[in-house]
Design a protein around this nucleic acid. Structure first.
Lengths: 214, 214, 214, 214
DNA sequence: CATGAATGAGCTTTCATTCAT
DNA sequence: GATGAATGAAAGCTCATTCAT
């Protein structure tokens, strides 16, 4: 998420204003959590007055819900850039893992929003529903790759794409989401090099798993 | 007749009170996060007056730090019950994964505290330091098991125990920490059965990885 | 082709708009009081934008003043329908009381405006001045009836018409203005039947008073 | 209601503090109405900080309810000082009217609270219920006097005490509650002399009514 | 030690009013 | 003339923290 000051507010443009608020809200909530977020800071970040925010969204919870939804929308958008069709199955898996790791690494605000929403018991995501907008595109890609791999006799055929995607996500999410405790507790150097190695090892692990007989 | 005689029980009481506060704080912070936690609720949960809490801890941040430390202490305590010495290397790995998964599953407050502290950028854990009290015993166990496995020619010899433990943790942590979004977004039934399957598959994945030539 | 031709309709529209605002304001202020009234709701009720309201009236206090004045204007208008000339004095008094009671009963917004303005210490009515527009027609009628009654030797001759009208008003106003507390505190059934009985009794009371020797 | 600054707050006395808040709330609500009342002013008037008020009462509506109840409690207290037993029936009625008029005149805050609560549709009084604390003592007195008058063959026997009390109240309430509009609209000099005359005339009117055959 | 009473500072939300088109 | 967009100022309410007993 680019945090450089939003370009000078073009006044009297409702849609643009709403978008600026959303952007600021996403920054604020992902950095401070739900209770820690301050509507004042959202207003300042968006370059608008507080009443505008309430005009457009109603109350803090609704701003949060909108920000969470926005997080998913953006991530989904970013995921569309992944194209695995040209790659053979195993290479596709490699690319998938690499992509996922980078995805989380470059969009830590998304990882934060996930953590925050889960800490809240998923109250909001459950209501946002709106599956098509929210569901990861990656799962579809995974499904396609697995099918190709199975067809080529390379992968076992008893793996659910969602379950498998959760493995990928698990391996990529944790080192990013828990960077700080990993550094402090295990003295790990959670930097790009370490994450790249992690990504590579995870890939091997996952491919090994896929190659195993059921 | 000095007051000497009762000074011992007093101390006992004080210690017990402090412990009750810690327990209440742990519950409060893990369920509501740092900003969401309320000192009033901690006091009520501990059955003491608010000034008591300030007497013992100073301010909210310090209570939080103590609760975080307490979380690690308790988890470390629980980890001591794991004994892998009697098991052959591969069985030991299986047990380790099983144990870790159950560990997170049964102590969701710990998972929450990890998420919370990481969202805060690890501010506190970095200061708590106190490594010996905090570092996971599991890493040592992992180290021992890996060594035995390497000695027996079963496992590759280029794996760092900490790195490997992080793989285990990744695979077990994510489905627990992100239960709610997994349910809402992927319609996954994140229940005991699903988690057991996950644990089993993760085990295979990890063993496969250990068996691979470097 | 000047714009002259449409200037008349414009004026008509402007006047009509102003009237709609006044109507909405009257509703709003009489139901919510001065502080409780919301300019937004007046705008919505009148079907115009807020700036329009400020264009026409200036500020909330001025709207209130206009609404109060409007209340008096309307009431005065309604009072014109009372014709006592054909009735003998005692019947005229009966009709007068009946009319007043119904007047308050059917125009509770007027009773409310009176209460509201008095709670505000009469700040506004004092400034509105504008006596001719505001003074009740009823007082004149009362004066005429009393004169006729005195002339006929039926009524005592030391009664001031205004004072007497205030008696009528007192007896009719209170049960309407205080309906809710009367219901709650005295369990009175303040409905049409009860008010009719009240009106009848009040009439006897007032006639008895008029017949008494000074 | 004495409005001179309350004697220096004796700190750390919960009951006294609560009472001071109640006093200040009564002043504030009766002067400014429900929406117009400011919690800040109540706090200042009571010599406490705002949080104290919320600690003791919860929210603005509850403060209002407590103030309304307090108004009734005080009025009932004041009404206890009326003793009619020694007076013959007609004198007792005279005294009753005189007392009621003075009651309203000296406690305008009570008249205001009645008007305010009625403007709110009696929302609160309906919930306060609590009849014994709220019902006027005067009604009982009226009942006793009427009974004595009927027994002495002086009064008609078809008058309900409550209904009759409402006549008294009507005649005394209106000139007080509507002082300001009466002054502004009818140029009436609503002062002590005028109110005394009113009281006297009302008495005659009411006695005449009581003496009439049914 | 222990606590009921109290508060400064800040948070979310509202509202009369104005700007800019 | 008309309005959607915007805001300064304040209102109700909360919370970490301290006082006084």
């Amino acid at each position: 998420m680019t945090s450089h000051k939003i370009s000078r507010p073009r006044k009297r443009d409702a849609e643009a204003t709403k978008q600026r608020i959303l952007q600021a809200a996403l920054e604020e909530f992902s950095t401070h959590g739900h209770s820690g977020a301050r509507v004042d800071r959202v207003a300042e970040g968006a370059g608008v007055s507080k009443p505008m925010i309430y005009e457009y969204f109603g109350d803090k919870d609704t701003i949060y819900a909108a920000a969470l939804r926005e997080a998913y929308v953006r991530i989904r958008q970013a995921e569309k850039h992944l194209d695995l069709d040209a790659l053979p199955p195993e290479a596709a898996i490699r690319e998938l893992v690499r992509f996922t790791m980078n995805h989380f690494r470059r969009n830590p605000w998304f990882v934060s929003m996930l953590a925050i929403e889960n800490l809240r018991g998923g109250q909001t995501i459950r209501q946002v529903g709106d599956a098509p907008l929210i569901q990861s595109v990656l799962v579809e890609r995974v499904g396609e790759v697995l099918k190709r791999g199975i067809g080529a006799g390379l992968f076992r055929d008893d793996i659910d794409p969602v379950d498998f995607y959760v493995f990928i996500a698990s391996l990529c999410y944790f080192p990013i989401s828990n960077t700080h405790t990993l550094k402090a507790v295990f003295k790990l150097p959670v930097d790009d090099a370490w994450l790249d190695k992690r990504s590579a090892d995870a890939t091997e692990m996952l491919l090994g798993f896929l190659r195993q007989a059921p």
